[in-house]
Design a protein around this nucleic acid. Structure first.
Lengths: 211, 211, 211, 211
DNA sequence: AATGAATGAGAGTTCATTCAT
DNA sequence: GATGAATGAACTCTCATTCAT
């Protein structure tokens, strides 16, 4: 990647034919695979090869390497945000305990679906863009959680955004911790249990403190 | 860095003379500075220049770029681990609430001291090595926290490692969250407050549940 | 353009239909425009886009980029040669002074009409072809001038080709000089005045010397 | 060459050792040779190979291809300008006829020394820079010629710059004409003769007209 | 006949690493 | 021991050209 990072987010050419859409998807998928093949640096050529197309084709859809990476990152982030948002919306009006349970389940599941790829991606997208994408996603998720919390049937949160933000980062921290320890399923389950305990305790404390 | 990453962790030559030690330190310091100079890729030449030595000299002390990066990472990790460990040891026998307070203060302070550098570093050290170093540090910190928790005057934790791990990752998650949002001091203070509330609530819940 | 430059000069297909002719013209015109859009490299795709056709269509009429460029060059050269030739023919039998005046006027006007494009073109057509085209044009123009000079009513030129060639290159040199200095109209007018003085003086000197 | 042309003129690194100076010279010489090898595009790799060094070395001395080309061009231009300037200075106070003779001899000789290379270079240096370099050289040469003309023992030129400019471009045009016709020595000699006649006639006419 | 997605060789450039001085 | 010029593999990106539709 050159020094410059003026990276338009959108594919250079809007796919007008079915074929093109498939090509773009193949490239994005290939990018993830290359990212996951620990040991091999992500190279545009490598991605194109894995996708079964030529470099030229890749560059027909992404103006540069950065934009490809951003698109992949964005997709992942969107996936997580969508899952969390849906879960939150379906829990409006419920008691807090059910909310936290559903939220955590949705978050953990979404994160773990492609967690490794997402971490790898995160590592690559050095650009300010990477941070920005993550930030946008955070904002969106925090808003969804806060909105949900405001409708709790058995508690009230004067500053739901603060609570939501804390919750989000705690969830993110624990998830990441498990991933990096690269332990198995047991660790994940254990983590999810503790995360639930943590959330319940925290939310209870917030209610008690009037936060 | 060549494709292969067989990177010995130790400097090629143990610094035996004062001068060598100074040189190594200068290089490590320079590496951090280059890392922090956002926008400039970390280059061995660049690091050497910043350190006021030649590339050749750099390679006299580090067999390759990876080993340099790992050393820097290690130093940072050690710093955080040392701070936390010291704090933990000084709190043996205290009540839980005082423990969590001291722990969080120490962690946040240590993390924020060079947090940006540490994140940048982490991003760079792709190698499996990076993860391993982080893992070793985690293990050490978890052990220190667990040991402290076991001596609490007003509570008992049957599985202190599990609690310690959860705590650590929650602290890490919240710290990272604040860093990435690149907001100011206010956010940090707010975060630290919530982190304390979270820890207290969680530890209380653990005690109650007999975890 | 591939390394090899075996470039047939003629369009692959003689335009036999009105539509084809229009397409070819559009492509040629587009090529000039792209050439003139300083800063943008001439690309077959770019030319096609500007012409409102697809690359495929462009390649239906020109076997390769080189042949397109040559055709454009040829057109320009032909334009200049035609103008000069016409001017020369209309001056047969006139006195030398009127001849040189008319010649210079025609040449300068023709050159300046698309001078920038012509220079750009010339620069592009690296191939030996470019030189050949220019040479053919020179030959033709020199012949026309020489023929005219031979009919002068008030002088005789034993070696009119030599005189014509000298005149041509002097005209070309002064024109190019003005173009490159990218000064305005004033410079052009001043140049034309001096060019006329130069030509008159030279032709007079030739007559006197019996050249 | 990328789209951008921000090309520092100076070598990236000032040669500090004898070896470096030799390397730079070798690269510049190689560039000319590659330029002259008609048919082969000038490639940084190709130039480096011809110079007997690696691409990396080339880039140690020239930040990019453009700067290399500019340096070569500059050298050539300087050569011509130096020759003309010296000739002009040595003719101060002489009669006009001797001046023009010496000027033409110096110019033609200097131009023909590396004329082919210079033309090739000129064709390559598309960049505005190419024009600028040529322009600077023209300015310098015109000044030298004008200064000389002002000291003529047998004539006076109220606007010596105008006369000098006309003369320069005429010389350039005729030289170029001969080169491009790629005829032999005879053509060159004939050209020089005519050029002298042209110059004498023109200068005489200027004097008579009070220009 | 026309289209434009796909191709892939090749260009410019960087940077980890070596080794003669 | 220190230096820094030299190396060259590897990377990102372009663009002339083809061919299935």
């Amino acid at each position: 990647m050159p020094r410059t990072l003026a990276t338009p987010l959108q594919p250079r050419k809007t796919p007008q034919q079915a074929r093109s859409g498939a090509t773009v998807d193949a490239i994005l998928e290939a990018a993830i695979q290359v990212l996951l093949a620990e040991g091999s640096t992500l190279t545009t050529t490598r991605v194109a090869a894995r996708a079964g197309v030529s470099v030229g084709t890749l560059y027909q859809y992404f103006p540069n390497k950065g934009s490809l990476l951003q698109t992949v990152l964005q997709h992942h982030m969107d996936g997580v945000a969508d899952a969390v948002q849906t879960a939150c919306e379906s829990m409006h009006g419920q008691p807090v305990r059910r909310m936290s349970e559903a939220l955590i389940a949705a978050f953990v599941q979404a994160k773990f679906r492609h967690l490794d790829a997402s971490v790898a991606l995160y590592r690559i997208s050095d650009d300010v863009q990477g941070k920005q994408i993550a930030l946008r996603m955070h904002t969106r998720v925090i808003a969804a959680i806060a909105a949900m919390l405001s409708t709790a049937s058995d508690a009230s949160f004067p500053t739901p955004e603060l609570v939501a933000e804390t919750l989000l980062h705690a969830m993110a921290g624990l998830s990441r911790g498990v991933l990096e320890s690269s332990q198995g399923l047991a660790a994940k389950t254990r983590m999810q249990t503790e995360l639930t305990r943590l959330a319940d305790a925290y939310l209870g404390s917030c209610t008690a403190a009037g936060i």
